[in-house]
Design a protein around this nucleic acid. Structure first.
Length: 271
DNA sequence: GTAGGATGCTAAC
DNA sequence: TTAGCCTCCTACG
């Protein structure tokens, strides 16, 4: 699940259940026990997301930095909290709710300075577009790079929050071959991609899933059977290798790019 | 029961 | 470029 939209949604959900309350902080699995003891009983004052990084602020000074990686999962529930299983890295609980974090790549107590350093190495985030995300910062890097646009979109220093699903889908929606070099993306093309990502990812936050198929291409509109994929949303190419393209009927292709699976339609997407 | 894969990233070679 | 992190689920015997 974890692309940027998931993390921004988590920031909202942690806040709605715990912000402004004193929180019981534990680490049943043990790896975060020392920090949990320091925070136990403190008020959760802020939550924030930048790209795939989640920050939980306590007492206006201390931050928990969370990164889900590939397998991290978060589970919310109503009080009373059941006994935690032995994989729960971090549990927050108050009078009304609890939340468990499992399998994160990162769960660490950091200072404001350390938090700032993380922001500084991340590119603009389409989901922070109304605050401090400047698409031209991303384009400056892209327009000067011979690296493929597919790799650049996954580089969190270039743009923060895009993952393998949004990468594949946004390139399909804009008919761009994933192997095209960054320097061959025109300025207007980048503006269109960015605007599209802002809309798609905002909808992703709202619905807590990724949908990228335009209304005119949905199964109902196209008279084809409903999708069978299990990842949760309606998509054009992601994990649809060897299946027919929703638009041209040609075969969707897949390939390895920087140790990740790439999906695209060679017929619809132009080099 | 076991192997393998997954929407991510980093350090080390 | 590769191994490693860490968890859950599915496919396969």
């Amino acid at each position: 699940m974890p692309e940027g939209h998931t993390i921004h949604r988590l920031a909202q959900d942690y806040a709605s259940r715990f912000a402004g309350t004193a929180v019981h902080v534990t680490s049943p699995q043990g790896k975060f026990s020392d920090a949990a003891a320091l925070l136990d009983g403190a008020e959760l004052t802020h939550t924030e997301a930048h790209g795939k990084h989640l920050f939980l602020g306590f007492r206006d000074t201390d931050w928990i930095h969370i990164h889900l990686g590939l397998f991290g999962k978060v589970n919310f529930g109503d009080a009373p909290a059941p006994p935690a299983t032995d994989t729960v890295r971090l549990r927050l609980a108050n009078a009304t709710a609890y939340v468990d974090l499992r399998g994160p790549t990162t769960c660490a107590l950091i200072t404001h300075t350390e938090k700032q350093a993380i922001h500084d190495r991340l590119g603009p985030d389409p989901l922070r577009a109304d605050t401090d995300a400047d698409p031209h910062l991303a384009y400056r890097r892209i327009s000067r790079s011979r690296t493929t646009i597919a790799a650049l979109l996954m580089d969190q220093k270039v743009i923060a929050g895009v993952g393998n699903v949004y990468r594949a889908e946004v390139l399909f929606r804009h008919r761009i071959d994933p192997y095209r070099a960054g320097k061959d993306i025109a300025p207007a093309q980048w503006d269109a991609i960015w605007t599209d990502l802002v809309e798609l990812m905002r909808e992703g936050v709202r619905n807590n899933r990724i949908d990228t198929v335009r209304p005119e291409h949905t199964p109902e509109a196209m008279g084809r059977p409903p999708r069978v994929d299990d990842h949760g949303g309606e998509v054009y190419v992601y994990r649809r290798a060897n299946l027919p393209c929703h638009i041209c009927g040609g075969e969707i292709r897949t390939a390895d790019l920087a140790a990740r699976n790439l999906f695209w339609c060679p017929n619809c997407q132009t080099p």
